[in-house]
């Protein structure tokens, strides 16, 4: 943004005041704010991971306490809502990639869903691998 001159002889540019609730005006803006809020779910998931790691460090009793706490109804509700926001983050993030980096083959632009597809494949493979490591019987 360029610097706007503001002196005695040059009045400030008029800027229409914007309401704090500007994002409630249309579905597009609301979706934008919802997408921006996914970062809170991301941070929350890290907090859950840190709580799990702390319980593992402290011992079996702390781990039992952690699993018990995760079963509390409010905690469960919070995690289900957070998980929905995580999915929104993943989907919007993957679908943004082809727009940030348009791929061209032979002078033609590759369709967006073909550019985004490898992201989804990577996501499924990574998720399955993590689940396998966590769930396998040693």
């Amino acid at each position: 943004m360029s610097v706007q001159p503001s002196t005695e002889f040059h009045p400030r540019w008029y800027r229409a005041p914007v309401s704090t609730y500007w994002w409630m005006g249309s579905w597009r803006y609301s979706l934008f704010i919802l997408r921006e809020l996914t970062s809170v779910a991301v941070a929350w998931s890290v907090v859950v991971t840190l709580l799990l790691l702390r319980s593992l460090l402290k011992g079996p009793d702390a781990y039992a306490h952690f699993t018990h706490r995760m079963q509390a109804p409010w905690m469960l509700a919070l995690n289900i809502i957070a998980f929905c926001f995580l999915l929104l983050h993943t989907i919007t993030w993957f679908n943004l990639a082809p727009r940030a980096m348009p791929v061209r083959v032979g002078g033609k632009r590759v369709p967006e869903f073909l550019v985004a597809a490898p992201n989804y494949v990577l996501w499924v493979v990574a998720s399955a691998a993590i689940a396998w490591f966590v769930l396998r019987k040693s």
Binding site: M75, F83, A126
Partner: peptide, 27 residues
Amino acid sequence: VAAVFIPVLLFLFGVAFPLGWLPQPSY
């Protein structure tokens, strides 16, 4: 990193294990 790795972690430890959909791994 958040898009690829975090959903499965929260799903397992925050939803699937507490609801008993999958067996809770041992300490």
